[in-house]
Write a protein that binds this DNA or RNA. Structure first.
Lengths: 210, 210
DNA sequence: TGTAAGTGTGTACGCTCGTACAGACTTTTC
DNA sequence: GAAAAGTCTGTACGAGCGTACACACTTACA
């Protein structure tokens, strides 16, 4: 019986001088993760509404039964896939912001997050749209999304005041969304100047005075 | 045979002195629109991935066969439902912006669009998420979405320069999205001050100088 | 009234879906 | 070597899906 808290731990030991090896990782070490990655690919290609166990299994090159073995149904699988996406994206977000060592660099980092495509490529934007949509109908994914937004704001708070962080975060959310549908590429200078305008207004943003 | 370009036109005429009346509107005048509204309700409740012909038919209180009579499959139905949503929202957006008669009122209109809930309630936000997600996998909905974004920017252009319009539009997109997942309500003063910061920076926004 | 055209629908079909589960397979222990 | 424990999977089943279509119904006109 597979417990969903799969650790992947492998242990070797010696008993009475005899060296034994416990079965080397269930069978296929990274299988669960491979399934989750396959799920994200399938979602990116056809959307959640066309995502099925069979497509995921085929993409991950695992038998159909594997999915019911590792996950408690399709909702659980999707929730864990989106959680994996959120982890990856959050980390990238944080690394980008954290690397900045001055206010100028911090502003530049925000511009980078908005203009990409290092942070969010078309594929990631598609997945994010799917996640947001699905979150409105699934409590686990909703929690994942909230945690993600909170982590984003915390990352910005490394450099900016709370008010500025909220405003910039909204901008980082909204602008790439338009980029996803606009034909024209994003004007990097316009973005930079908008970011600067918000940052410069910090002393006047009310939430910071509370 | 029903042609999907249903006009709803009723015509009376006289031929050779005999007065005739063409059947007064197919049978159930607003049926097609009722089906589309029902579709949006079903989508709002369970998401596109749980939306089916049968649920829509039940919600609209029409027979199942009606849906295949009026629409060329589920993709067509969803596309027209989202087009209806976009029309409604676009109009509301434009009316809100257009009513402003000074720069101060224009800024206030933008704040209103962001903070709602007049413009976008939770239900509408859910539908918008679904539309964006679906647009990435359906050409017709993608076109509808692009047209919507363009109309939004045109509305803003009634009061603001192109650069400011783009920046504000991104903010109007992103901030309500966070509102949809945040526990805390939006701080209206912070929003107002952010909007003002962007508007005030207009002379320095590069796209306006081109 | 009879006929033709057009509008609308109940039913049924073929298909794919999620999921269950008997049992094959692998490793460990005796 | 045999048994036990645990890991994994191929197959099958019931449910629900989109869609087609024969046919009922309504109206227009002869």
């Amino acid at each position: 019986m597979y417990a969903c808290t799969h650790s992947g731990v492998v242990d070797s030991w010696h008993i009475g001088g005899v060296s034994g090896t416990r079965r080397e990782i269930p069978n296929d070490p990274g299988r669960k993760e491979r399934i989750l990655d396959a799920a994200l690919e399938v979602i990116a290609e056809g959307g959640v509404h066309k995502t099925t166990h069979r497509k995921i299994a085929a993409r991950a090159q695992v038998p159909l039964g594997s999915l019911t073995y590792y996950f408690d149904g399709i909702d659980d699988l999707l929730a864990q896939a989106f959680a994996r996406l959120a982890d990856t994206m959050s980390l990238l977000y944080r690394q980008t912001v954290q690397a900045a060592e001055s206010m100028a660099e911090a502003e530049e980092a925000v511009v980078e997050l908005i203009c990409g495509p290092a942070y969010a490529t078309d594929r990631e934007m598609t997945l994010i749209f799917e996640m947001y949509a699905y979150a409105n109908h699934n409590e686990a994914v909703s929690a994942t999304t909230r945690a993600w937004l909170e982590r984003s704001r915390d990352s910005l708070a490394l450099h900016f005041t709370p008010g500025v962080s909220r405003a910039l975060d909204a901008l980082i959310e909204g602008w790439p969304m338009h980029r996803a549908f606009d034909d024209a590429p994003l004007d990097r200078r316009l973005v930079a100047e908008t970011v600067h305008a918000i940052v410069s207004a910090a002393p006047r943003l009310s939430i910071d005075t509370v």
